[in-house]
C-alpha cells in the first residue's frame, strides 16, 4: 500500500495558478472552490520588496484534525493516506473546516446546478454534451473509489457537503499523477509514495531541506515545501475572487 505525499518547490513556483485551473477542470470544482489555491504575497518596503507564491492543496495530514472531529466519519483517511470526504455521508456541519489549520476546505454553499458559473441548460449544447453538468464534467468523478467504494472524487455532487482536494483519487487509481502535479509548467511538484525510498518524492525529500506548514500543531502533513516559508508580515496580492453572491 503506497502512502502518498507531495513536495512543493517554492523556489520554482511562478505563481501562475495553472495547477489551480487543472484542478478545477479535472475535479469540476464549483465556483469559489479552490482545492488548490496558489497564494501570492509580498513582503518588505519599496524598493526592498520580495514577492512569493505558495501553492496550497490539502495537506493530507497523517494526524488529521478534520478526520478526528467529523461526527459521522464522512471525513476519513484511507490506508494510502488520502484524506477524503464521503459525499453520501457528510452532514455538512463544517466542523472539519473549522478544525483544519490550513483552510483547505470548501463547503458547497449552493446546489451544484447553481454553482457552475454559467447556465448550461441549453438544448443545443445538451445535444452535444448529453446534459453533462458542467459540460466538461469528468465522468470518473461520478463513480465510487477506494477500498470501501465510497463517493469521494471530485466536486459538485450535492449542495451542503464539505469538499476539498482529494489528491485526485480518480487519477491515482489510473496510475496518473494528480492533475495539478501533471500540469505544472515548471515542475514545482514531486508526487509519489513516501514509503518507497526509491520514489521520486522520497528522493527529493532525502536530498532537499523541506518544511511543513504549522509543524507545531503536530498534524504531520504529507505535503512538504522547499524554500522559504512566508513570514508573519507578508501581505496577500491578487487574491482570487470569492465567487458571486
Amino acid at each position: 500500500m503506497p502512502r502518498y505525499g507531495m513536495v512543493i518547490d517554492l523556489d520554482r513556483c511562478m505563481g501562475c495558478r495553472a495547477c489551480m485551473e487543472a484542478c478545477k477542470i479535472e475535479n469540476a470544482t464549483t465556483e469559489g472552490h479552490f482545492w488548490m489555491n496558489v497564494f501570492r504575497y509580498e513582503e518588505g518596503e519599496y524598493p526592498d520588496v520580495h514577492v512569493g507564491f505558495l501553492p496550497r492543496p490539502c495537506q493530507h495530514c497523517e494526524n488529521a484534525p478534520c478526520v478526528k472531529v467529523c461526527p459521522v466519519q464522512a471525513r476519513h483517511q484511507q490506508d494510502d493516506g488520502l484524506v477524503l470526504t464521503d459525499f453520501k455521508r457528510c452532514i455538512g456541519c463544517r466542523y472539519c473546516e473549522v478544525a483544519c489549520p490550513y483552510g483547505v476546505n470548501y463547503f458547497a454553499f449552493a446546489e451544484p446546478e447553481d454553482s457552475y458559473y454559467l447556465d448550461w441548460s441549453d438544448p443545443a449544447l445538451e445535444s452535444v454534451t448529453g446534459g453533462a453538468q458542467p459540460p466538461y464534467r469528468n465522468p470518473d468523478l461520478d463513480v465510487r473509489h477506494g477500498p470501501d467504494g465510497r463517493l469521494v472524487a471530485g466536486d459538485g455532487h450535492y449542495g451542503g457537503v464539505m469538499t476539498k482536494c482529494t489528491f485526485c483519487v480518480q487519477r491515482l487509481e489510473k496510475d496518473l499523477d494528480p492533475a495539478c502535479v501533471a500540469n505544472c509548467p515548471v515542475d514545482v511538484f514531486t508526487f509519489g509514495d513516501l514509503d518507497d525510498p526509491e520514489s521520486e518524492v522520497s528522493r527529493k525529500l532525502a536530498s532537499t531541506r523541506t518544511f511543513r506548514l504549522k509543524e507545531e500543531l503536530n498534524t504531520r502533513p504529507k505535503v512538504f515545501y522547499v524554500g522559504t516559508p512566508p513570514g508573519e508580515d507578508t501581505r496577500e496580492l491578487e487574491p482570487v475572487s470569492k465567487g458571486r453572491e
Binding site: 495553472a18 458559473y117 466538461y136 501533471a182 509548467p185
Partner: peptide, 13 residues
C-alpha cells in the same frame, strides 16, 4: 511538454 497555462486549461469552458 505536457502542460498548459491557466488559459489553456480553462479554454474548455
Amino acid at each position: 511538454a505536457g502542460t498548459l497555462c491557466p488559459k489553456g486549461m480553462a479554454q474548455i469552458v
